[in-house]
Amino acid sequence: MKNELLDSVKFYVITTGNEERVARINRYFEGLDFEFVFSDPYEDFVELEKKYRNYSHKFRQKSIMAGEIGCFKTHTQAWLKVINSGKPGIIVEDNVEFIIKPSRLLEEDAIEYIFKCGLVNFTDFRYILDPFSPYKISDVKEKRPFPTVCYGVTPFRAKNLIGGFSKTAYSLPIDKWLSIPKLSRCYGFMSPIIIAKRSSDLSSIANTKKGRKTHNPMNMVIRLINKIRYDY
């Protein structure tokens, strides 16, 4: 691969701006090209939670929560940055724990996976289908969510994701949404290169409590229809 491709990938770190986490990320990425993507105030997500509560009940019994909305929205902001840059990006959450230095993702094989797959994950994953090549997470029969702690995406696939978001925003939490091709509008792949995991000592910016359950029979019918329509 040409040297210019090796310099074409940038890291985007999703964060609430917590000082300890920001300092931790700065240590991880010292000497690397990265940019923080800051989430909006939590109060904004509370309003969105009210707006999308009934809509999300049509996709799962528990409604989507403010923290889940915040996580989803901040990832979309990172996708837009990737699109505007015209270069692939590696999206990282600030509760990441790197097993291997993040610079590993600037090596040729990792960058090739990003270009070839379009959306590819570098996070530890229990349900490995192929230890040597990328595989689609939608092929995992256990129907596991797509880990959002560390993944690469091309501008073209980021456009696909934004297109899917425009149709089914906040229907499900982002990790589940990304694992469903008919919602996200593209396949998400798991890479054999594993460099990160979610830190057990740090929470995500997603929900801190469970969503409200719906017992409305009509929601149950629509939810069944959506499960068939979107195949999840």
Score class of each variant (00 low, 15 high):
F122V: 11
G118F: 07
P155S: 03
L80K: 14
I64W: 00
K143M: 15
K73R: 13
K143Q: 15
E112K: 07
D124T: 15
S133W: 06
Y113T: 09
C117P: 02
Q61V: 14
Y135T: 12
K81Q: 10
I91W: 06
P145R: 07
K143T: 15
K136M: 14
Y151P: 08
N121F: 07
I137A: 10
H75C: 14
K143C: 15
R126L: 06
Y127A: 15
K81E: 11
F146L: 15
V149F: 09
K141A: 15
L80E: 05
Q61R: 06
K182M: 13
E68A: 08
K62V: 03
I69V: 11
S103P: 03
G118Y: 04
R157W: 12
W79M: 09
I128M: 05
P155V: 12
R126P: 03
P102R: 00
I90P: 02
R53T: 10
P173E: 06
I64L: 01
K136C: 15
F156D: 11
P155H: 04
F59L: 00
K81N: 11
N95K: 02
F98C: 00
N54R: 14
E142K: 05
A158T: 12
T74H: 09
F156L: 10
Q77W: 03
K73G: 04
T123F: 11
S166W: 07
P181C: 13
K62T: 00
R126E: 09
K159P: 06
L178F: 10
E68D: 06
D124G: 13
D124N: 15
P145E: 03
D124I: 13
P145Y: 08
K141F: 15
G89F: 12
Y113M: 04
S171Y: 10
Y113K: 12
S138I: 11
R104C: 06
G86W: 09
V92H: 01
G70L: 01
L172I: 13
A78R: 01
K143A: 15
I114K: 02
S133L: 13
G164P: 03
I174D: 00
W177D: 02
E68W: 06
S138L: 10
